[in-house]
Design a protein around this nucleic acid. Structure first.
Lengths: 122, 122, 122, 122
DNA sequence: GTGGTCTAGACCACT
DNA sequence: GTGGTCTAGACCACA
């Protein structure tokens, strides 16, 4: 189980925040293989967003083989180990780091500041 | 002076890439206080983008007091440094790093992956 | 360029029909790398469907790296060769064949009937 | 008699899988005219699905005159064969095969891939 | 002008 | 009850 939370201030779209939280839940082991996710409707009510917004998030994860849905039954964590092709993986990392440094720059931090801080977190 | 470069594949919008490169230039000392930037028009031609895209980038940096525009003369690196108290600054950096490492984590990346990627961007 | 066409009678959702036609256009060479697709709005008008329906189709193909979008500019055929992992590819084939035989069965055809007909098409 | 089996991973709904297996059984001679099918209840238990799911499959086949239900007795394979004129039948088969090979083609599959997969399903 | 996100609400398919 | 599709219409971000 997982506690979902949306922050309208981040600028990140709602459906993307849902996706990230599910991915994070899986990575940390809080969501386990085969586990059922909240229904689109219940999560929509809980987060006070439209049903379609939740459905969009679930759908994207289904395309990526992270989730499996069985119509009329529910949505579940897939048991397939997601293998992102090396190329896409690199692009994703680049994308994450770009956004990261963009935000850090706007606060006046340098790349070295970031690296130092990350080293400490290890 | 600085060599600008846009990459449509990063997913980062053009105007943001321009902002980041100016900020990065300042942080690394390649752009110095008082130095004049290319005109909106010439940079737009150089990067093959719309005038508005460059103007938007300059405008945002002007709002943040990073640039100063002198009517009829051009755009310059501002000498005003916005100072954030050291303590807050550190907390902010920590906060940013935490959020980003958790996102990277959920895609299967480690802190080292991020550091490596950031090193490349330097 | 491509001539899109929707058939409400097939039971296949509109957005899926759009996806299939784009994929088919690429496979047959009617859509070439880098080529721009119709804008979501113009295609929506042409097909007399809602903007969101077209956007959904484009989005799914973007997730699969078949299309690339640049906000404010348009949607293009990606130059990345799509490599579907062998496992997914097999599942997709299974899925297609299942639907295929399901329809054929309902007309009273056997698996052998289908195979014979396919042999002739070679 | 027949051994039913459901696979949630195919994407094909349960009720459709049941329909296909009955049709397939008839086509291959494993189910013969007049033979009695399992009761809705027993098949539902065997397949661990809802009563309604099995009932829906039987109902659809009854509409198509493939099955006959005798109140209080059970469900049987109908002896009525719906006959489509040979010529129309051939055209229909051709039409179906054309559509499906074009879909398979757009995913990078060849006609041989389809034939191989269909052989496995036999 | 381009695409992206979101809502409210409807109706369908499946279990 | 579950998820899936679609519409009409709004507002935002970007070039």
């Amino acid at each position: 189980m997982i506690q979902f939370k949306l922050d309208p201030k981040t600028g990140s779209p709602f459906y993307r925040q849902i996706i990230d939280q599910i991915r994070f839940g899986i990575a940390t082991g809080n969501l386990k293989t085969g586990e059922q996710l909240p229904t689109v409707r219940s999560l929509a009510v809980e987060l006070k967003v439209n049903l379609n917004t939740v459905a969009k998030a679930y759908k994207e994860l289904e395309i990526q083989s992270v989730l499996e849905t069985q119509q009329g039954t529910g949505t579940f964590i897939s048991d397939i180990k997601v293998q992102i092709p090396a190329k896409d993986k690199n692009n994703k990392l680049k994308e994450i780091c770009n956004e990261f440094s963009s935000i850090a720059f706007s606060y006046g931090f340098t790349v070295d500041d970031m690296i130092n801080q990350l080293q400490k977190q290890k």
